[in-house]
Write a protein that binds this DNA or RNA. Structure first.
Lengths: 201, 201
DNA sequence: TAAACGACAACGATCGTTCTCTTTCGACTA
DNA sequence: TAGTCGAAAGAGAACGATCGTTGTCGTTTA
C-alpha cells in the first residue's frame, strides 16, 4: 500500500476542503463548478474524486464543518463567560464570530448552508441536531441569568434560548450581507441590553 | 394589437410568478429547472420567455417581492403598535411573519434569497436598501422606547435597531429550518423580555 | 512489484434558451 | 356591422453549452 497512511489521506482531504472553502466563499456552492475546484486545489478530477464521491459530498463536509465551528464558538464563549453578564457573553460570541468571519468568510458559508438545509436531508438533520442541542445547552445558561434576575423569570428558558440563537443567526446574516462594518456596533448594543446587574421583567 | 392590454400582461406575469413561487418553495431556486416551472405554470417555454428574459429575471422578481413583503410587514406592525410595548411589537411582527409563512412558504424563499444576495449584485443592492432603510426606520421606533425607558438609553438607536432586525432574521431562519412549531414560544419570550412598563439599562 | 495515487480526455445528461410555426384576437375598412 | 389583416401570444421541438462524473493510463511508493 503506497502513500496510504491514514494521516496522509486525512491531510489530503483537508487540503481539498480548504480549497473548496475558498472557492465556495468566493463564488457560492452552485456557481462553483468542480473544474473550478480542481483549479483552486491545483489537482486533477481523478485526485479529488479519490477522496470525495461527488460534489454533494464536498458540500456536505464543508457545511457540517461550518455547523461544528459556529456551534463550538458559541458554546465555548457562553460557557466560559457564565460569570459575566448575559449581554457580555452574547457580545463576546458575536465578536468571536466576526473575527473568524474576517479570516475565512464563515458567515457567507453559513448563509449558504441554511439554504442547502432546505434541500439536503443530511444537512437538515445536522442543523436540527445543532440548533436543538444548542438550544437546550443555552437554556441552562439562560436559566442561570433568570435566577440572578438578569433575564425575566416568566418565559421558559428554552424560549429565551431560541431568541438568543435568533440574535446570533441574524447577526451572521447581516455580517454576510452587509459586511463587518455595518454591524460593528452590535456588541455594544448587546452589552447595554443586558448589563451586568440589571433587573428586567 | 391582440390581447395586449397592460392589465393582461401584468396578470400573466403575476400568474407565472405565482407558479414559480410554488415551485421554488418546494424545490429551491437551483433544483427547480425552467422545465419544472413550465410544468407548474402549465405553459410552454415560449410563453414564459415572452414575459421574462431568463431564469435569473424570474428569481430576481420573486426575491424582490419577498423583500418587499417582509419589509412591509415589519414596518406596518411596528408602526401601528408604537403605543404598546416594544416586546409586544416584536411579538406581533413575528406572529405576522409566521402566519404568512404558513400560507406561502415565505421563510424558505427568504433564506434562499439571502444566499442569492451573495452572488447577484441586483439582489444584494435590494437587500442593502431594505436592511439599511428598515434600520433607520426602526431606529426611530426604538428611540421612542429609549425615551420611555423600555430600552437602555446608552447605545445608539441604530445599533439597537440592528439587534431588532437580527432577531427577526434569526426567527425567519428558524421558521424555515425547524418549522413553525419549534418557534411557537418565541412571541411569549419577546413580550417577556420587553414588557409594557419595564425599566432596563 | 503490486496497489494506491493522480492526470487527463471525453462522455452523457441536464438545462437554459432559442427558433419556427400556429393560433388568437384587436383594429381598421368597406 | 361583417370581414380581413397584422401583430402579439403561445406551443414545442431542438440546440448549444455547461457540468458532474467516469474510465484509462502513466507514476509513485510502501
Amino acid at each position: 500500500m503506497p502513500r496510504t497512511s491514514e494521516r496522509y489521506r486525512d491531510a489530503r482531504r483537508e487540503y481539498i476542503l480548504d480549497a473548496a472553502r475558498r472557492a465556495f466563499a468566493r463564488n457560492g456552492f452552485h456557481a462553483t463548478s468542480m473544474h473550478d475546484l480542481f483549479a483552486e486545489a491545483g489537482l486533477s478530477s481523478g485526485a479529488v474524486y479519490r477522496y470525495f464521491a461527488g460534489k454533494d459530498e464536498v458540500v456536505v463536509a464543508i457545511v457540517e464543518d461550518n455547523i461544528r465551528q459556529i456551534g463550538a464558538m458559541i458554546r465555548a464563549v457562553t460557557e466560559e463567560r457564565a460569570d459575566g453578564s448575559f449581554g457580555a457573553a452574547l457580545a463576546a460570541a458575536v465578536e468571536t464570530i466576526q473575527a473568524k468571519h474576517r479570516e475565512n468568510g464563515l458567515a457567507g458559508i453559513g448563509v449558504q448552508a441554511w439554504t442547502e438545509a432546505l434541500r439536503d436531508p443530511r444537512i437538515a438533520a445536522a442543523f436540527e441536531e445543532m440548533l436543538t442541542g444548542l438550544r437546550s445547552e443555552l437554556a441552562e445558561v439562560v436559566a442561570h441569568y433568570q435566577r440572578t434576575n438578569t433575564l425575566p423569570a416568566g418565559p421558559s428558558a428554552e424560549s429565551l434560548a431560541s431568541v438568543t440563537i435568533a440574535i446570533l443567526v441574524g447577526y451572521i446574516q447581516q455580517l454576510a450581507l452587509l459586511g463587518p462594518d455595518a454591524v460593528a456596533d452590535t456588541p455594544d448594543a448587546l452589552r447595554a441590553l443586558w448589563p451586568p446587574s440589571a433587573v428586567a421583567g
